[in-house]
């Protein structure tokens, strides 16, 4: 009996949470299209979310591209490795690793920062204060972050694609003694617009997940410093899991044909 009560409680809590998240997303998205618009805040958030994430994302992409090149070479050196390394690095980075690893790195950096900032604003009543100053907190706090993240993540991932392929190129030409011209030609020949585009679409969705999870957990944090800490952890964990799950779903949809 007790056992079923526990299951029931878990299910109810989960459903309530999903309901609250859905309402939160609805509120946020509906305010994206209703004036007034806070362009300055969007620009500011684009700097914070996008520009300042560049070093992290670039380094991640570079080393991933390099490691990928080595793995393919060691795994397949009996075959025509010089051509498949370049091709698989390019496809792997643009389709999967660029958006996913970039998204996860930004989730760690940005979801946490958003949750901590909004969480602190919540517990110090700054979010309530916005309401008393005729400013909708969704519009002022959530919308700029969501819009900025959805716009900048594809840009970040595009940069990550280039640097990731460069990582493969550097390892390929320096360590594995491939011919630079052949490597570039192989990359260019096999890489299609759709490969890059699918990664960028994923990146936009990941940006949405990152900002929404940060805002949602920040908005709902309670109970002082401990509550803010919990909100921060939850934001990063849920954003990361949702990114991986969404990635699977999108891969199966985008490459289904």
């Amino acid at each position: 009996m007790n056992f079923f009560a526990i299951i029931g409680r878990v299910v109810l809590t989960l459903l309530a949470e999903i309901g609250r998240l859905s309402l939160f997303i609805w509120q946020s998205v509906s305010h994206v299209f209703r004036p007034p618009f806070f362009w300055r805040l969007v620009a500011q958030q684009m700097m914070r979310i996008g520009y300042f994430s560049l070093p992290v994302v670039a380094l991640t992409a570079f080393f991933t591209g390099g490691a990928l090149a080595l793995q393919i070479y060691y795994g397949g050196n009996e075959f025509n490795s010089e051509s498949i390394v370049a091709t698989i690095v390019a496809l792997g980075i643009t389709r999967e690793l660029g958006p996913v690893l970039g998204g996860l790195m930004v989730a760690g950096r940005v979801s946490a920062a958003i949750a901590a900032e909004l969480g602190t604003m919540r517990v110090t009543e700054q979010i309530d204060a916005l309401t008393t100053l005729s400013t909708n907190p969704y519009k002022y706090l959530v919308v700029p972050r969501v819009v900025a993240a959805v716009l900048t993540l594809p840009l970040l991932v595009f940069v990550a694609d280039i640097i990731g392929i460069m990582g493969g190129f550097v390892v390929g030409t320096q360590t594995l003694d491939f011919n630079a011209g052949v490597y570039i030609k192989n990359t260019a020949d096999f890489l299609k617009f759709d490969d890059v585009m699918s990664g960028l679409i994923k990146a936009g969705v990941f940006g949405f997940i990152i900002a929404i999870m940060g805002c949602f957990h920040g908005f709902n944090s309670k109970g002082g410093a401990q509550g803010v800490g919990r909100a921060t952890t939850n934001a990063v964990v849920t954003a990361s899991i949702l990114i991986l799950a969404a990635n699977y779903v999108m891969t199966s949809l985008l490459f289904a044909n």
Binding site: M121, T124, E125, Q126, D128, A129, T131, T132, S134, N136
Partner: peptide, 19 residues
Amino acid sequence: REAVLRKFGMLFQGAALFD
């Protein structure tokens, strides 16, 4: 509601200034 909120001002316990 927003029109009504414009009539209000509030001083919060911890001041709740935007830092």
